Deep mutational scan, measured.
Amino acid sequence: SQHQEELPPPPLPPGWEEKVDNLGRTYYVNHNNRTTQWHRPSLMDVSSE
């Protein structure tokens, strides 16, 4: 059986914070524009500005 090492997730872009809601779900807060989202932001998402 193949065992895959879990890679650590990439660092969050500046201004982002990973949080967990009261149901144990992980979400991400963008403090730059005060938004939240479910999927993890990547540095590539942000660098397109």
Results as ranks from 00 to 15, higher is better:
33 N>M: 15
5 E>W: 00
19 K>E: 05
49 E>H: 02
10 P>D: 08
14 P>I: 15
41 P>A: 01
40 R>M: 05
22 N>P: 12
13 P>H: 03
18 E>S: 09
47 S>Y: 07
23 L>V: 11
11 P>M: 13
11 P>T: 09
3 H>F: 09
21 D>E: 02
14 P>N: 10
14 P>S: 14
20 V>I: 05
26 T>G: 04
40 R>T: 03
22 N>W: 03
1 S>I: 00
23 L>S: 14
5 E>R: 15
45 D>R: 09
8 P>L: 07
28 Y>A: 01
9 P>T: 07
4 Q>W: 00
28 Y>G: 01
49 E>Q: 03
28 Y>F: 10
19 K>C: 05
10 P>R: 13
13 P>C: 04
29 V>F: 13
23 L>M: 10
41 P>V: 00
11 P>H: 09
18 E>W: 03
22 N>K: 14
27 Y>T: 08
21 D>M: 01
3 H>M: 04
25 R>I: 02
46 V>T: 13
29 V>N: 02
10 P>N: 06
16 W>L: 02
48 S>E: 15
3 H>I: 15
8 P>C: 08
20 V>G: 03
45 D>H: 15
8 P>V: 12
17 E>G: 05
34 R>I: 05
23 L>K: 15
43 L>G: 09
28 Y>K: 01
16 W>F: 13
12 L>F: 00
28 Y>E: 01
32 N>T: 09
48 S>F: 05
34 R>E: 08
7 L>N: 12
39 H>G: 10
31 H>F: 10
43 L>H: 10
17 E>D: 04
16 W>Q: 02
31 H>G: 08
21 D>N: 03
48 S>C: 08
49 E>A: 07
9 P>H: 09
38 W>C: 11
18 E>V: 08
11 P>W: 04
49 E>T: 04
15 G>A: 12
47 S>G: 10
30 N>L: 01
43 L>R: 12
10 P>T: 07
9 P>D: 07
7 L>E: 02
43 L>Q: 05
38 W>R: 11
45 D>E: 14
44 M>W: 04
15 G>Q: 10
45 D>M: 07
21 D>Q: 01
10 P>I: 10
20 V>R: 13
25 R>A: 14
39 H>V: 11
47 S>M: 05
24 G>N: 14
39 H>W: 06
22 N>M: 09
34 R>Q: 12
4 Q>A: 05
20 V>W: 04
11 P>L: 09
47 S>C: 10
32 N>F: 08
23 L>D: 13
20 V>L: 09
27 Y>M: 07
44 M>E: 11
2 Q>Y: 13
32 N>E: 10
14 P>R: 15
28 Y>P: 02
23 L>Y: 08
35 T>W: 10
36 T>F: 02
1 S>T: 15
23 L>W: 11
43 L>P: 15
29 V>G: 03
15 G>L: 06
20 V>N: 09
3 H>C: 05
14 P>D: 06
21 D>K: 00
32 N>I: 10
13 P>G: 07
4 Q>E: 01
33 N>H: 11
49 E>W: 00
6 E>A: 04
27 Y>S: 04
45 D>Y: 02
46 V>S: 14
27 Y>E: 02
47 S>A: 12
43 L>M: 13
4 Q>S: 06
28 Y>T: 01
7 L>S: 12
15 G>S: 08
22 N>G: 04
24 G>C: 04
30 N>D: 07
40 R>W: 04
41 P>F: 00
49 E>G: 05
47 S>W: 02
31 H>M: 13
31 H>C: 09
47 S>T: 11
37 Q>T: 15
7 L>P: 02
38 W>I: 07
9 P>A: 12
9 P>L: 07
44 M>F: 10
16 W>K: 02
31 H>R: 13
34 R>F: 12
36 T>A: 05
8 P>K: 13
6 E>T: 10
6 E>V: 05
19 K>I: 07
5 E>K: 02
8 P>D: 10
38 W>E: 09
11 P>N: 04
48 S>G: 11
11 P>K: 14
8 P>A: 11
31 H>N: 12
21 D>S: 11
48 S>N: 03
14 P>L: 14
27 Y>Q: 07
34 R>V: 07
49 E>Y: 03
15 G>D: 06
27 Y>K: 05
24 G>M: 05
25 R>L: 08
16 W>T: 07
3 H>S: 07
38 W>A: 11
3 H>R: 01
11 P>A: 11
32 N>V: 05
20 V>S: 08
7 L>D: 14
36 T>C: 08
24 G>I: 00
22 N>D: 10
12 L>A: 10
44 M>H: 15
19 K>M: 02
13 P>Q: 06
18 E>N: 06
40 R>H: 07
42 S>N: 15
29 V>R: 07
5 E>V: 15
46 V>H: 05
43 L>S: 14
3 H>Y: 09
26 T>N: 09
2 Q>K: 03
40 R>Q: 08
38 W>P: 13
2 Q>A: 01
24 G>L: 03
29 V>K: 00
16 W>D: 01
4 Q>C: 10
43 L>V: 09
11 P>G: 11
36 T>Q: 09
17 E>S: 08
16 W>G: 03
15 G>E: 01
40 R>C: 02
31 H>S: 11
17 E>V: 07
33 N>Y: 12
26 T>S: 14
48 S>L: 13
34 R>K: 15
45 D>P: 15
33 N>S: 14
42 S>E: 14
8 P>S: 14
3 H>V: 11
31 H>E: 12
45 D>V: 08
30 N>W: 01
42 S>P: 13
34 R>N: 14
48 S>Y: 06
48 S>R: 13
18 E>D: 03
6 E>M: 02
18 E>I: 09
45 D>F: 04
8 P>E: 10
20 V>P: 04
48 S>I: 15
20 V>D: 08
42 S>M: 08
4 Q>D: 08
23 L>F: 14
49 E>L: 08
8 P>G: 09
41 P>S: 01
32 N>A: 12
2 Q>G: 01
7 L>Q: 02
45 D>A: 09
48 S>T: 15
29 V>C: 09
34 R>H: 00
26 T>K: 15
44 M>S: 14
39 H>F: 11
17 E>P: 00
7 L>F: 14
25 R>Q: 15
24 G>V: 00
19 K>Q: 05
26 T>V: 10
27 Y>I: 04
37 Q>A: 09
11 P>S: 11
13 P>E: 06
38 W>D: 12
7 L>I: 15
19 K>L: 07
3 H>A: 04
30 N>Y: 04
27 Y>W: 05
5 E>A: 00
2 Q>L: 02
40 R>P: 08
29 V>W: 07
44 M>G: 11
44 M>C: 11
7 L>H: 08
13 P>L: 08
29 V>T: 06
32 N>Q: 10
14 P>C: 06
40 R>Y: 03
18 E>C: 10
3 H>Q: 02
23 L>P: 01
24 G>W: 01
